[in-house]
C-alpha cells in the first residue's frame, strides 16, 4: 500500500530560505541547503523548492541551490517559481530537480502544461494552484478561484475547472494551496482539498495552513490528500519532520518511517 507523503516546502529568495504569511511580509530564515539536509536525514519524503526571487538576473542562484541539494539529498526534489517555458524546466532538471512545478505562467498560457508534460513526462510536471475562497457564481461554480502572482491577482478562473483542465493537459500531480489558510496555522482548507481530490485521478498535495500534527492527519483522511505539504511548522522548529511522521503513523496512517 502506498504511503501518505510528508513534503516540506522551502521558499527561496536570492538563495536564502524565506517564509511568508498570506504571501506578504516575507522574512529570510536561513540556508536552504542545510535545512534540506536536516529534513532528509529526519525522514522527509519529498522536497519542494519555490523560487520567489523577484529579479530575473538573480535566478541562476536557484540552479546552484538545486545542484547543491541534489548531490546530498536522495529523495524526489521538486522545483517551481517562475517556470515559463520548457527551457526553464530543462535547466532545473539538469541542475537536479526531478519534478517541475508550474503555476502563474500556466494560468496565463495553459499550453505550458502540455509542452512540459511532453518534454519531461507527465509524472514530472506538477500543477501548483493558489486558490482563494469566493462567492459561488455562474463563472465560479466551485466557490473557489485561482489567483496568481503570489496571490495578488484574481484570475476569475474556477479552481475545480482549472484542476480538471490541468489533469487533462497532462499534469501528473496537483498542489492545492489555499491562500486563505496559508500561514494561519489553523489547518488546511479541507473542503477545497476534498473537492479537488475527489474530482481528479492524479495525486493531490495539500498546502497552506498546517500548524499542528492533527492538521496533517485531517487533510490526509477527511481531505482526501495523498500528501501534506508543511513549511513554517518545521522551519521554525515547532515540530520535526520525524515527529510529524511518527504521529501520523501512530494515528494509523501508512507512513514511511526512515
Amino acid at each position: 500500500m502506498l504511503s501518505k507523503r510528508v513534503i516540506a516546502c522551502l521558499d527561496v529568495r536570492n538563495g536564502n530560505l524565506a517564509k511568508s504569511v498570506k504571501f506578504v511580509d516575507t522574512k529570510d530564515i536561513g540556508d536552504p541547503v542545510a535545512k534540506a539536509r536536516e529534513y532528509y536525514l529526519d525522514g522527509l519524503d519529498e522536497l519542494v523548492f519555490y523560487d520567489i526571487t523577484a529579479s530575473s538576473d538573480k535566478r541562476n542562484i536557484m540552479l546552484d541551490v538545486v545542484e547543491a541539494v541534489a548531490s546530498e539529498v536522495f529523495i524526489p526534489l521538486s522545483v517551481g517559481g517562475g517556470v515559463r517555458s520548457v527551457a526553464d524546466a530543462t535547466d532545473l532538471r539538469l541542475a537536479g530537480a526531478e519534478k517541475i512545478n508550474v503555476n502563474s505562467a500556466a494560468v496565463q498560457r495553459p499550453e505550458l502544461i502540455n509542452e512540459c508534460a511532453e518534454a519531461i513526462g507527465n509524472q514530472n510536471i506538477v500543477l501548483s494552484m493558489d486558490v482563494l475562497r469566493t462567492e459561488v457564481s455562474a463563472a465560479l461554480p466551485s466557490g473557489y478561484q485561482i489567483v496568481i502572482n503570489g496571490g495578488r491577482t484574481n484570475t476569475g478562473r474556477d479552481a475545480l475547472a482549472w484542476a480538471l483542465e490541468g489533469e487533462q493537459r497532462g499534469a501528473g500531480e496537483l498542489v492545492v494551496n489555499s491562500i486563505d489558510a496559508d500561514g494561519t496555522k489553523d489547518g488546511y482548507e479541507l473542503t477545497l482539498t476534498a473537492m479537488i481530490a475527489r474530482a481528479v485521478r492524479i495525486p493531490v498535495i495539500a498546502s497552506g495552513g498546517a500548524g499542528k500534527p492533527e492538521h496533517l492527519y485531517q487533510v490526509l483522511t477527511e481531505g482526501g490528500a495523498d500528501a501534506a505539504l508543511v513549511a513554517s511548522m518545521v522551519h521554525y522548529g515547532d515540530y520535526t519532520v520525524g515527529e510529524l511522521k511518527r504521529y501520523l503513523h501512530d494515528r494509523g496512517l501508512k507512513i514511511r518511517l526512515g
Binding site: M1, L2, S3, D45, G172, R201, P203, D226
Partner: peptide, 10 residues
C-alpha cells in the same frame, strides 16, 4: 487506483 503509482511503498 491512481495511475501512475507514485510515492513510497514497501
Amino acid at each position: 487506483l491512481k495511475v501512475p503509482h507514485m510515492g513510497w511503498n514497501e
